[in-house]
Design a protein around this nucleic acid. Structure first.
Lengths: 326, 326
DNA sequence: GTAATACATGTAACCGGTTACACATTGGGG
DNA sequence: CCCCAATGTGTAACCGGTTACATGTATTAC
């Protein structure tokens, strides 16, 4: 391994000078700088980030905690984060929490042990002491905690829009799928939807779903039609479940959207490719990631940040699982 | 921050002794150990991995390079890797290469600067010097290079099976979608498929696709029917494109699988939820990830490894986009 | 012409661990 | 009873950078 000493020797200067050249700090004579730069290039030297990190007590690594990248919504967040972090020279240590507190703690632990300079977390436990005791900035993504820095989409509004649209397009026997109880944004959506339903005096049914997993999505869809076969409008808890509902409706010979309208949530990339393509409430996932990264960078690089809470708008994406407005 | 010195002071011993306790190395009196452990617990001390990494010249981090986690196949690999690595106490620094050599080099660079102890890469450039000059073990995942450690599925076989199945189920005007030219496994599939088609003397058409992106998938599907409207069997380059083909067929009023059979590739989680659900060639993605992680761990922990090249089997998953066998 | 300041560079301490080595002390074998 | 091996613990060097501080020279100000 090449070290700063080797470079110093080759350039005939001290390590301090080499360090100054690398970091563009302090005074360095122009000719000395040239010599050092030549040596660096020739030896193909790059500084050991670990040594730097040890002295500075902070690395260029940020910790990213997501529930499960296997759920297509999260890779989009991750890409948004990565793209932005990349531009600023930060890299990502990544972990899936599976919504499991223990795994989460474990990852936070290693993030700290590795001197991460900041953290982005999509957690169900933002109130935990671990977070408030952290000495590094944390941004909560897709989740919130009182006035901690957070980036999220307006779930309640999304739920409201979903309900409004499906009603406006003529569904009256509506079933709302309620996402996992421990996942805040899922509850926000649900609340938003039933709020509107209640306001408009429309009766509805509720199907509880306890996870967002692909494997179970099918079961909820089966249960849905098992219980409420004559439902003519489904507000799904996310696009995966919505996809399963389309599938099941199809299997039962129901025509979508003529007999049954379906609205999803998230707008994952595949939604537009489904048959029929899925009408859904879009969360700007990639942007949410970018914003979260941007916010974290601000928190890292300057201490004062005005807008610590960023709420991004959701929007209704009209596709083929809803009818034209009447 | 808590350091080993603080612990040493509290326990009334030297840092060396604390270190011995932590690492269970050397001799430590049972009572001393108890004292130290008590101090560690009380102060809630965890060692700084950066300092360790600096001295040992290796961390507990592994570098993971994937083309794009936004493509649902890769998160499955990543989960497989993470799950296994987690069990062994290794953590992941992650990067998306976008199949771009420069980004890739850049990430490899930072992996090294952070003393990663090994690397898993899904790259199109396994032959590059960077890889052969690396002093740390590398496992190529979903890609291969002569006799470097690799884990991949049998793409050619997959292509063959796809062709055999679609022919056996009665398609005769087959269109094969050829994946991006620079992606090896995509070409393997394609080769496998046309091999069988040629062997059986069946004429076929080819649609070139230059990416696996969601946004472009729709275009290939449109192009497909634009050029070959009477095709009755499509071998898609992956499940995303296959989904787009179902969508387009649906739009054109073609009945799947009666008028048109479609076989995808990958078996991403959503495939089973599509309408109709997608018949596809399954790659055991999660297992591939696990195997890659297992192989890397072996390479790290013992120098000698017998089976450095692991090929996993693909299988035909019969669903609703193919007809029953005749 | 001299003091103050800017420029240039090197020496060594430091970051928080690990471990080689030195220095006990203890116990068993002969 | 003596010697050597096993046990137990501390001191200090080391990993590869960064930076405070010291030192020295060249400018500039007055």
């Amino acid at each position: 391994m090449m070290t700063i000493k080797d470079v110093a020797k080759k350039a005939g200067v001290s390590v301090a000078t080499v360090s100054r050249v690398i970091n563009e700090s302090g005074y360095v004579n122009i000719d000395t700088r040239k010599k050092v730069e030549a040596a660096i290039k020739e030896m193909n030297y790059t500084p050991n980030e670990v040594a730097r990190s040890l002295y500075k007590r902070k690395s260029k690594l940020i910790g990213l905690l997501l529930p499960d990248i296997t759920n297509p919504f999260f890779p989009q967040l991750a890409r948004g984060i990565e793209d932005r972090m990349q531009e600023h020279g930060y890299r990502i240590i990544f972990g899936n929490s599976d919504e499991n507190e223990e795994k989460e703690l474990d990852y936070i632990q290693t993030f700290i042990q590795n001197n991460v300079i900041g953290m982005i977390s999509s957690t169900n436990f933002p109130e935990k002491d671990i977070y408030s005791n952290l000495k590094i900035p944390v941004v909560f993504l897709d989740r919130t905690s009182n006035d901690s820095p957070s980036v999220y989409a307006d779930g309640r509004k999304g739920g409201r829009i979903a309900a409004q649209e499906i009603i406006a397009r003529g569904s009256s026997k509506i079933t709302v799928m309620q996402g996992p109880a421990h996942i805040k944004p899922a509850q926000d959506r649900f609340q938003g939807a039933i709020e509107v339903l209640d306001e408009m005096g429309i009766t509805y049914h509720v199907i509880q779903t306890s996870s967002f997993s692909h494997t179970e999505a099918e079961q909820w869809a089966v249960e849905l039609f098992d219980k409420y076969i004559d439902t003519d409008g489904v507000i799904a808890s996310n696009d995966i479940v919505a996809t399963a509902v389309i599938h099941e409706a199809h299997r039962l010979g129901k025509r979508v959207p003529q007999d049954l309208q379906i609205i999803g949530f998230d707008d994952i990339p595949l939604s537009s490719l489904l048959s029929p393509s899925l009408s859904t409430i879009r969360q700007p996932a990639h942007d949410m990631g970018r914003e979260a990264a941007g916010l974290l960078i601000k928190l890292i690089e300057q201490d004062k940040v005005e807008d610590k809470i960023i709420q991004l708008p959701v929007s209704f994406v009209e596709r083929e699982t809803t009818r034209s407005i009447e």
